[in-house]
Simulated scan of single mutants.
Amino acid sequence: MDDNYLNVVMGIIMNAGNAKGLAHEALEAAKLNDFEKADQLMTESSQALAEAHNVQSDMLTKEAQGDHTEVNLYMVHAQDHLMTAITYQDLVKELITLYKKNMNFA
């Protein structure tokens, strides 16, 4: 396994992990009714997720061009992080929306 491959895997893992962590911080801010902070953190989370997704998209483009990427446990782990971060971010967006709606009824 070469350094470039590890950089790709770690790029996905780190950016997806950052995206998930920032989304969690946004949820905590929403619980405290700090929606400005929650929105800012979700913007940062989306940026980190876009970085992870860009790394994945580059890999997919190379694969389509015939440059095969080895799939091993590291890559599976990276993809797991990415998909979990995407799902968690989607859920947090919905929860923040609910917190905002509840504030209107308080």
Rank of each mutant, 00 (worst) to 15 (best):
D90F: 00
G17S: 10
L6Q: 10
A38S: 04
D90E: 05
A29F: 01
A78W: 01
H24K: 12
D3E: 12
K100E: 09
N18V: 13
F105H: 15
H53A: 08
A16Q: 06
K93W: 05
E44I: 12
H77V: 00
S46T: 15
L91C: 10
D80E: 08
Q65C: 01
N54Q: 15
A78P: 01
V9T: 02
T69C: 06
D67G: 14
N33I: 13
L60F: 02
Q40I: 12
M75G: 06
G17Y: 08
I86S: 13
V55Y: 07
E70C: 02
E51L: 03
L95H: 06
N18S: 15
M75A: 10
D3P: 09
Q65N: 04
G21K: 00
H24F: 11
H53P: 09
K20L: 01
A26M: 03
L91P: 11
G11D: 02
S45A: 11
M10R: 01
T97Y: 12
I12C: 04
N104M: 13
T87W: 13
Q40A: 14
Q79P: 11
Y99V: 10
M42L: 07
L6A: 06
T84L: 09
H24D: 14
Q65A: 06
A30R: 13
A50Y: 14
N104T: 10
M59A: 05
I13Y: 03
N54Y: 10
Y5R: 00
V76E: 08
Y5A: 00
A85T: 05
T97R: 02
H77F: 03
M103P: 13
A30L: 12
D2A: 00
